[in-house]
Each structure stands twice: as C-alpha cells, then as structure tokens.
Design a binder for these strands. Structure first.
Length: 349
DNA sequence: AACCCGGGGGG
DNA sequence: CCCCCAGGGTT
C-alpha cells in the first residue's frame, strides 16, 4: 500500500474549501496556522477573514496598535497567540523587510511558531518536504499503523515525525500535509468514524484489530497534587504518645496517625506555635526535628511530603497510648515505617 | 517533563 | 459532562 497515494486521491475528492488554501502567500498561511492552533476550523474561519481584511499585509498588522490586535482576537482564547502574532509581525515587517523566513529551521525562531506550525508553513508556502504532526496526524497514523504509544508523552511525537517523514512524498509535501489533516478532521474522526467509506479499510491495523475506538492512546493524565503533612509525635517521659483515627473522606480513612498539620502548600515553619495552640493543655518542653528532609510518598493522585516532629511534654492526656502499644493499631505504611525506624531512646531522657 | 493557556462544539 | 480541537511557551 502506498499511503500517500490513497491519501491524496481521497483528498482530491473530499477536501474542504478553505480560504488559506487559495494562496501561497506566507503571511496568510502563517496567520491561518496561528489561528488554527488548538482551534477548530469552523471557529477560526471568521477570525482569519477579519484579520486578513483588517490587516492585508504583515506590515499592516505590525503597524497596528496592540489593543486593536487583541480586540480582534477577542473570543478566540489562548491570547498569548495574539501577543506573539503581533510580535512576529513586527519582526518580519521591521527586521526582515516584510519577508517571512523561507524554511522550517528559520521559521522555528519566530515567536508562536513551534514544530507543527513551522512544518505547516514551510511545506504549504515553500514546498519544503517536512511533515506536520498535529492531533489529526497522531490519530490517523496511530490507527492505520496500529501504533500504541502514549501520545501524551512528549517522546512520542518524534516517533510519529519519523514515520510521517517516510510517508510524505517529495513532490507534494503541501498537498500531503493538508490532506492528512483534512482526512483526520472529516474522515478519521476522534469518535465513531465511518470506516465503511475509508480508503484504508483494507490496510488499517486498528480496523482489523478492533482498536479504532481506542487509538490513539492518550493516557489519562492524572492530576497529582502536592500535599504537605507534618506529624507531631508527642511524647512524655514515660513513652506515652497521642494518636488519632482518620475519619474524613480522604486518603487513609479509618487508619491511625499522629496529630497532623495538613496543608497543600508548605508551611510548618512554626510547629511550636501550632502545637501550643492545638494542645494548650500540654506543657511543651521541646520540639525536635526528626526528619531533616521531607519523606516523599507517592500516591496515585497526590505526592506527599511528610515530616515528623518530636514534641516532648511533661503532662499528656490520660487517653494517650504507650509507644509499645502502637503495633495494635493500623497506620499508613509511611507512618508505620517511620515508627519502626525511630529509636525512642533518642527522644526520652 | 509538567503546567498553563480558552472558548467552543460533538457525542 | 468529558473529550478534543490544524500547539506553544515557561519553568
């Protein structure tokens, strides 16, 4: 199977008619590519028309007040795109004599132009043979070739760039790049593509192996929060301490712990004051740092930074627990390990 | 490598 | 309500 032949045949019959395809003007092509970053064609189209009508040349855009540019961008989101757009227009107009860089490498130096956009402009405006890799390309190639790499991993982009580089025909890079994106946008859609009319129905690995709905693989990026836990090991001279049960709807529910200062940002700079406030019945003799470096403990959704503090007291509530009895309670493993590691003699004297 | 940046539409 | 959109910049 010659991938590009089928693709371009499909494209010639099914391509969308888009205004930036009617020109080789690098200004118009650059403008369209910036507008279309993470933006659907239907949403970007009116903005493209408005910008080109208001600023027919890159010099017009460069000469515009920034407020005007931002107002014209209003509603499109990702406003750094508009600021970079204006900055790049000024650079092209004032430093490059109004001429855009004419190759991939030099286009990359422009603000707001990354690997995808540089490849798009270089191929579409200047026929450089460099493949684009955008969300559509990830989807199309992962399905046709059955690639199961996680596309949310940065390293995966290189894998797709290398594959696409073997597929892009030297005589038609502009057509190929636009074709594969159109194909992804209208035929090989994210959900429920109509594979019955797909030219790759007899070639597609995902179709043959029933993976169309699961490719490309984009691992759910679990949001891992940082959390800072400071446990207070309160001890009297007889080796009695205080523990409490975790009852909140939270990690470690029903397990036991030492009294806790819990925060999502690092504090614990003044354990003394906190302890006096919370346990004012206790006479504090001394607060000791038991962990110089915080102990990190990785959970699925949280990264815990844990410190243990020793608090030596004279009197302790009668519901305290003897240190030797702690093994009768269930603790989170990170606390259990710390209890095991602690030499009590260093605290009681 | 992780995080932030946005408004919008499809399913 | 979740996912994704012709990604890039910053830390």
């Amino acid at each position: 199977m010659i991938f590009s032949n089928k693709l371009i045949t499909w494209y010639l019959e099914n391509k969308r008619f888009l205004p930036w395809r009617e020109t080789k003007n690098p200004y118009a092509i650059w403008l369209s590519e910036i507008i279309l970053q993470q933006t659907r064609v239907a949403q970007g189209l009116p903005y493209f028309e408005a910008f080109l009508n208001t600023y027919p040349t890159v010099t017009d855009l460069a000469n515009a007040p920034e407020d005007d540019v931002m107002r014209l961008w209003q509603g499109l989101g990702y406003y750094s795109r508009a600021r970079n757009l204006h900055a790049t227009a000024k650079k092209v107009a004032y430093e490059l004599n109004g001429n855009f860089p004419t190759n991939y490498k030099d286009l990359l130096t422009l603000k707001g132009v990354g690997e995808y956009t540089a490849a798009a402009i270089a191929s579409i405006a200047y026929d450089e043979v460099v493949p684009v890799v955008d969300g559509n390309v990830f989807r199309v190639l992962s399905r046709v070739y059955g690639i199961t790499s996680d596309i949310s991993a940065n390293s995966t982009k290189k894998e797709f760039q290398e594959l696409a580089a073997t597929l892009i025909p030297a005589e038609a890079p502009a057509t190929f790049n636009q074709a594969i994106m159109d194909f992804g946008a209208t035929q090989c859609t994210p959900k429920s593509p109509d594979c019955s009319v797909c030219p790759y129905i007899n070639d597609c690995v995902a179709y043959a192996t029933n993976q169309v709905s699961t490719l490309p693989i984009k691992l759910a990026k679990v949001k891992v929060k940082k959390r800072y836990l400071d446990f207070l090991i309160i001890l009297d001279a007889n080796g009695n301490t205080i523990i409490e049960q975790r009852t909140e709807k939270d990690i470690w529910q029903q397990l036991y712990q030492f009294p806790l200062i819990d925060s999502f940002k690092h504090n614990a700079e003044d354990i003394n004051d906190y302890v006096k406030e919370k346990f004012d019945s206790l006479y504090i003799k001394e607060v000791l740092t038991l962990t110089n470096e915080a102990i990190t403990h990785q959970l699925s959704h949280q990264k815990l930074h844990i410190k243990f503090w020793g608090v030596r007291v004279d009197n302790i509530p009668t519901d305290s627990t003897a240190w030797a009895e702690l093994n009768k309670f269930g603790f989170p493993i990170v606390i259990h390990n710390f209890i095991k590691s602690l030499d009590l003699k260093t605290l009681i004297y």
